[in-house]
Design a protein around this nucleic acid. Sequence first.
DNA 1: ATAATAGTGTCTCTTAGACAGTATTTG
DNA 2: CAAATACTGTCTAAGAGACACTATTAT
Lengths: 234, 234
Amino acid sequence: MLSEAEFLQQYDPGDFERPSVAVDVVVMTVCEGVLQVALIRRDQHPHMGRYMLPGGFVGIDEDILAAANRVLRDKAGVSNIFLEQLYTFGGPGRDPRMRVITVAHVALVPCGVLETVATYPVQVDWDGEDGGPAMAVQDGESLPMAFDHADILGVAVKRLRGRLSYSPVAYSLLPETFTLRALQEVHEAICGHRLNKPSFRRRVLASGELVPTGEREESRAHRPAELYRFALGD
Amino acid sequence: MLSEAEFLQQYDPGDFERPSVAVDVVVMTVCEGVLQVALIRRDQHPHMGRYMLPGGFVGIDEDILAAANRVLRDKAGVSNIFLEQLYTFGGPGRDPRMRVITVAHVALVPCGVLETVATYPVQVDWDGEDGGPAMAVQDGESLPMAFDHADILGVAVKRLRGRLSYSPVAYSLLPETFTLRALQEVHEAICGHRLNKPSFRRRVLASGELVPTGEREESRAHRPAELYRFALGD
DNA sequence: ATAATAGTGTCTCTTAGACAGTATTTG
DNA sequence: CAAATACTGTCTAAGAGACACTATTAT
């Protein structure tokens, strides 16, 4: 009878065909009340000219989340931002070159942080509990998307909407300090409809997640709003 | 310049090392108010003697969900049950034999349907929004689990709890017709605490998801409860 | 009748939406 | 002062927990 160590010593993994494993990252931001997604125009086959999510293959000894962070750094030029796994897409035929299983992720960044990649407004044709693919638009035209990336984007928006009510995701989309109005605009951009102001304020202030800074925004032509900070874990 | 068809013709995927991709299925059921999970005792290295989730490798041309359904059929003897993707676990070193990335799934079956696999009560040491690994117990002893399957089980319970409030998952754990008491017991088993009876009844009856059958349970020593049916999509 | 559970009526508390009001800034 | 927006007070409606009550069955 072999010990476990002996077993591992003599173990032969075999040479059956294995799929490639990739990560794709749905990098989202909200600017001026509009939900946007980072996309890259493909300049190579397949799907040349279509728009894709930043992605890359997972190294044989690389953790999946680490691969997603690497993609974020290399293709979007950002680090240390909100990043979580979304869903794994792996239908045979989703990439015409070979079998590729991709672990999709969602990343959230404040407006204006992305410099090395372009972002486009996200448009969603469904509401509430439904789901489906989502589009990215430019000048009123919807952009053609590569592979199944429109489906991935749709799942990302749906997940984001679901998390909004019980998770502090919106803070990842805002700068260090922000006004309640800006926070509300982020919520409205994600869920796709307007919210009641007094109710929104009550709710977020009662959550205990916000700390007033005492500072005010530099006013435009009106009364300046107080700046708040997100109360990180306590 | 190559056309896309020509490009694909000459494309060489290369021979870089690829991870193996597997599916694991957390098959859960609720019997007599107790949440249980199907586990298989390993009779081979590695982790011989420990308990694992039913799982298997994804074929090179096999859809991921299809692989999970195949595992359900072959290892648990059930088909056509609730099954959805949970999370992808892929840390290097999670399997000592080789790099294995596993797409974990959750399946739900009514009590008494599983015959070819044993189930064990699930015990969770955390509450509410937290998370963490979960244990399976037998005769008061917690079972040693293989690989990272305790973590996977923990994520499955957390996800199940989260879905409970806005998704009709509980019906997948009940037979065709059931009493409101049985439905409430399923909810209590999943969320881990007792619920208020009148409030629970009001909520589920108002949801429009339930249709009274007019039938009654065959009574034990008391007033028999009415049997309801889940109103499938309308 | 008694035991045991099914099912309901009602009170209260919390929370959200609606709406109108007051406060504070620039010009 | 006017304009514009920040912020708040209050009313109302919906929903949940708590508790006690009535209803129906078997023994």
